[in-house]
Design a protein around this nucleic acid. Structure first.
Lengths: 177, 177
DNA sequence: ATCAGCATGTAAGGCGTTACATGATTCA
DNA sequence: TGAATCATGTAACGCCTTACATGCTGAT
């Protein structure tokens, strides 16, 4: 019932910073927020089209030569939709970790399998953590710049969380042995 | 393409512990693993039906009086499907936190809104953390019992993670002020 | 010349949630 | 008697992922 299409809000949020094309939006999502939210072309382009029809955003042809480019700009109704969402208290925060699911059912085979699954997870998290730390270092240099603080805060959430995960990995491996 | 219906694995995993009805399965999910995986009746019953047709599980009428009860038992093919999945390295570990999304776009309105959103998140996490600690305390008493260790490990993941989240909440609130 | 990246979109299908529909039993 | 809980299931709908289809541009 409650329409849930958060991708709309992601797009409005990104457009509140600057005008972007669908392709740009995908890149922004991939590089900036992908560790807590995802998006795909099959998701973004239709949302862009719908929101344009509803008047929340406007499109502008910014093609360069033969290369098609359609930039979108946020309208005032888009801005108020964004602000309205931001002020709503309820937020769906979901963790869906298949690694934990596998561990939960680890009892039906050799411990080695669980140990290995934890190690795979650990490696992934370590590598993601390095990326986040790279972001954090850059952002920390100019937190006074618009929106940098907000970006930094989300990145630092990721760092805190991932460090805790790694701590757990060590402990869990020891307990399994 | 790659069929992804993890609910099948959740069900097989739970049935590998004991025979259960669809209703029981829902309860097990809600109380034991809901912080990292969810399930609904509209999800569970069809999966049960499909897996029964495929021969992975068998049903048995365990009705009591006029109250219908259909218990399911895992077959050997079900067990091998479960073990096969457990041995597969790839695991989708996804975090989808709307609170972080809202925070990321916090720049378009008063800081109070972001501060409030963090507090709502903090309260939710605190309350969930208490529940997890309750589980951990009980489980810790007899880790040698079958599968208790695995349950304990997932719960302790939740505790480590949530404690890190709370630490972050404090820091984030300070930085926003 | 060819490959990676830029750029827009559609179509099919899968998965899951929510709401609905139905009925029994237990306990206050 | 009424509410909560036990118990099974279906239907509609929404959202997202994956794959496909197409074409330009810039660098090697």
């Amino acid at each position: 019932m409650a329409k849930d299409k958060k991708i709309d809000m992601v797009i409005l949020g990104l457009l509140s910073h600057e005008d972007l094309t669908g392709y740009d939006i995908k890149k922004r999502i991939d590089t900036g927020i992908s560790f807590f939210w995802k998006g795909s072309f099959g998701n973004i382009y239709p949302a862009l089209k719908d929101m344009e029809e509803e008047g929340l955003i406007s499109k502008k042809d910014t093609s360069v030569g033969g290369r098609e480019r359609i930039s979108y700009h946020i309208n005032s109704s888009g801005k108020s939709a964004l602000r309205k969402w931001l002020r709503e208290e309820q937020a769906s925060n979901e963790l869906r970790y298949e690694t934990l699911l596998k561990l939960f059912f680890g009892g039906c085979q050799d411990k080695k399998v669980s140990l290995h699954n934890i190690e795979v997870f650990e490696n992934q998290i370590s590598s993601d953590l390095k990326i986040l730390k790279g972001f954090a270092a850059k952002l920390k240099q100019n937190l006074d710049e618009a929106d940098h603080l907000y970006f930094y805060l989300t990145v630092s959430f990721g760092i805190e969380a991932y460090e805790a995960y790694l701590k757990w990995c060590k402990k869990a491996k020891e307990m399994l042995k």
